[in-house]
Computed example of a mutant assay.
Amino acid sequence: MRLCRGARKAWRSAVLDIYTIIFLALAVFIFVRLRSVLGQRTGRERPPYDPYSRDTARPPQPASDKVVPLPERPVSPPAASPVDEAPPAYRWEGVAQEGSATAAALDEIARIEPDFDARHFLTGARAAYEMIVTAFAAGDRRALKDLLAKDVYDGFVSAIADRESRRETMESRFVAVEQAELQDVTVRDRSAQLTVRFVSKLISVTRGPDGAVVDGSPDTVADVTDVWTFARDLGTRDPNWKLVATEAAQ
């Protein structure tokens, strides 16, 4: 049996209304379920992290056994205000006796070169003493040439050449330089000579071509006293003192 056109239209409208109601009911059901799961607060929610807020702490990170906490940086105490130190009563104190000929010669050097410091000179003389003894043992002619006056250099080189002709080797090692004491000072025609007495402990050994010991000992520390004289022309641009004389003290 065929439905008339009006009946078919009414039937389609009824069908659409039923589907609309079903979809609406389904949407309401889904909304209610989602709200029951996501829309409630338990009181334990973590507030959002704001990296630009000073009042919001960074969320805690899980601890790791590979991280070692650094100690807090100690607070440095405030620097003490500088205290003016009183100048020494005597310029050459600890170097030369007041009123002595040595002190007078040092005064003459300081008159020509106001920046002269006797203590600084003794520090440099100590260093030069160690360098020269070590360079002589090693046969280092280049190092010796800048530290020795020509006649002293020639004597050192001659001794090195004699040792080499015998195919001997020398080893010298300082244990300590215990004393570097100013013993004499002379100034003549703007040329100064300062004599220093060195007291040191030294291990020195000379070996033959076969390695056998021919002088000294590799295991014995010897007490050595040397008296060396250094010289330079005052008032010149060359600040270097050179060794001009050596002697072994008795």
Rank of each mutant, 00 (worst) to 15 (best):
A63Q: 12
V68C: 02
A125P: 01
H120G: 09
E98C: 10
S200V: 05
V67E: 11
D162I: 08
A79S: 15
A125Y: 00
Q250T: 08
A180P: 03
E45I: 07
T169Y: 02
S217R: 04
G211L: 01
R58H: 15
D184C: 02
R173F: 09
P218W: 07
E85K: 14
A10N: 07
T236V: 05
I22H: 11
Q61A: 15
P62T: 08
V214D: 02
G211S: 02
A7N: 08
V196P: 00
V95Q: 05
D184E: 13
V67Q: 08
R173N: 10
E98T: 13
E247M: 14
A101C: 11
R12H: 04
G216H: 06
F121P: 00
T246I: 13
E171D: 15
V205N: 00
S76G: 07
Q61E: 13
D50A: 09
R232K: 13
T56D: 15
D84G: 06
A89E: 08
P88A: 06
R41S: 14
V177P: 01
I18V: 10
A125F: 00
I22N: 08
S81R: 10
L234W: 00
S13G: 10
A25V: 11
E181Y: 09
V152S: 05
R35H: 12
A212W: 01
E72F: 05
P62L: 10
A86L: 14
A222L: 05
S191W: 11
D223L: 11
R35P: 00
V152P: 00
A96M: 09
A86V: 13
A149P: 01
K242M: 07
Q179L: 10
L24Q: 03
S158P: 03
E108R: 14
E181N: 09
E113I: 00
S217E: 03
P88M: 04
A176I: 04
R111P: 02
G235Y: 00
P60M: 06
W241K: 06
E181A: 14
I22C: 13
M170P: 01
V213E: 04
D238K: 01
P51T: 11
G94Q: 08
G155W: 09
T195I: 04
S191D: 09
F198P: 00
I203R: 07
G6I: 09
V133N: 03
L3V: 06
E93T: 11
Y19D: 10
V157Y: 06
A57S: 15
R119D: 05
P82N: 03
V83A: 12
V32M: 14
V227T: 12
T195V: 09
R12W: 02
P47L: 07
T20K: 11
P239M: 03
A63K: 11
A128Y: 00
A110M: 06
D50R: 11
R73C: 15
P60E: 10
V157A: 14
V196T: 03
R111W: 06
L34A: 10
S76V: 12
P218R: 07
L182I: 09
Q40H: 14
A149F: 07
R207G: 06
E72M: 08
R41M: 14
T225V: 12
D226S: 12
A63L: 13
Q193I: 09
A104S: 14
Q40E: 12
L16W: 10
Y19F: 15
S217K: 04
V68T: 08
G39R: 07
I18T: 02
A138W: 01
A231F: 01
V196S: 01
V227A: 03
S76K: 10
Q183L: 08
